[in-house]
């Protein structure tokens, strides 16, 4: 998955860079980085399914809202996640997602950090040959 965690952005929190040839892959990469920050996805079973749709005016806002929804579902459903299917309509700037995961269970899952929020710290989405973004998560 084209994302990597960065060390030189923040000491107290978690930052990552995600890339993708399409908005679909960018969104999927960024979502996986968020999912992995909360728990090792290999240790989470796909017992629960959450579907959501986001529509925004700009790509930046759409990605922000899309990732924020994952954080929101983590708390609302007391869940961690293992996979996500994403479909982004680049023309209408609409993202549909199917997120799979399970209720938190530290006896079965390798849990990491409880992400508080997606920040706007140095946040931007760029498109050159490929899409890329750098995101800082507040821990």
């Amino acid at each position: 998955m084209p994302y990597r965690f960065l060390e030189d952005i923040t000491q107290a929190d978690v930052a990552f860079k995600a890339t993708g040839k399409t908005l679909n892959t960018l969104f999927k990469s960024a979502a996986h980085a968020v999912i992995e920050t909360m728990a090792n996805p290999k240790t989470v079973k796909p017992k629960l399914t959450f579907e959501f749709t986001k529509k925004e005016q700009t790509v930046e806002r759409l990605l922000f809202e899309f990732l924020e929804e994952i954080i929101y579902l983590k708390d609302k459903e007391a869940a961690v996640f293992c996979s996500i299917t994403v479909k982004v309509n680049e023309k209408t700037l609409e993202a549909k997602a199917i997120l799979k995961g399970d209720t938190v269970n530290p006896k079965k899952q390798e849990l990491h950090q409880d992400v508080k929020a997606i920040t706007m710290h140095n946040y931007k989405v760029e498109h050159n040959k490929e899409w890329k973004t750098t995101i800082v998560l507040d821990i």
Partner: peptide
């Protein structure tokens, strides 16, 4: 205390 004061991801 560990069992009575929930903590971490998804603690309720």
């Amino acid at each position: 205390l560990y069992t009575k004061v929930p903590s971490g991801v998804g603690g309720t």
